[in-house]
Amino acid sequence: MGEQFIRLLAGRVSEREQQLLVMAYSSLRRRVAETLLRLYEPTANDPEATIQLSREDMAAMVGTAPESLIRTLSEFNQSGLIELTPGNIRVVQPEKLRCAHW
């Protein structure tokens, strides 16, 4: 049981390290796309599922100012990758978000 707990903690540390590397070396678009995909994955089987998170909270997750996040989300919306409604984000084309060369 103790070994499972250590593995769980080690996995979380590795995940956090990866997130910090992404934040440090990736473009803003890539960071926003990665965050959207991370939030989308648990609901991937439900085509109507939305991400319900304030822009301020999401900006903190991405590591940017809310204004920069909103601008990037608007670009993704105009490109048809996501749909924005007040208080909700729906990922429409996850594969394009995942494979884009930002």
Score class of each variant (00 low, 15 high):
M61F: 12
R90L: 03
L53I: 14
A60F: 12
E95S: 13
Q78M: 11
D57S: 09
E3S: 13
S27E: 12
N45F: 07
D57G: 01
R7D: 07
R12I: 00
R98S: 15
S14D: 13
M23G: 04
G11P: 00
E95P: 05
Y40Q: 08
Q52H: 11
G2Q: 10
G87P: 07
R30T: 08
R55E: 13
K96T: 06
S68Y: 13
Y40C: 01
Q18W: 06
L69P: 04
V92G: 08
N88R: 13
V22C: 04
M61I: 06
R55N: 15
A59I: 11
E17A: 03
L36W: 01
E95M: 12
F5W: 05
E41S: 11
N45V: 12
I6H: 04
L81G: 01
H101M: 13
A33M: 02
E83D: 15
E34W: 10
P42M: 01
R7L: 10
C99W: 06
S54D: 13
T64L: 08
E83L: 14
C99K: 13
E17V: 03
L84E: 09
S54L: 06
Q52R: 14
P94E: 08
S14H: 10
T85E: 15
I89C: 07
S26H: 05
L97A: 10
A10M: 10
M58L: 14
P94T: 03
I82Q: 07
T35V: 09
L37P: 02
Q19G: 00
R31E: 00
Q93K: 13
I70E: 15
Q4M: 15
I6E: 03
A100T: 06
A49D: 02
T50V: 12
S27R: 04
R29C: 07
Q78N: 11
G87R: 05
M23Y: 05
R98L: 13
P42D: 03
Q93M: 12
P42A: 02
G80Q: 03
T35P: 01
M23I: 04
P42T: 02
Q18N: 09
S14E: 10
A59Y: 11
A33C: 05
Q52F: 05
R55D: 15
E41R: 13
Q78P: 01
I70W: 02
T64D: 05
V91N: 09
N45T: 14
R71S: 13
V92Y: 05
L37C: 00
W102Y: 10
R7I: 03
A44N: 01
L9C: 11
E15K: 09
R38N: 10
I82W: 14
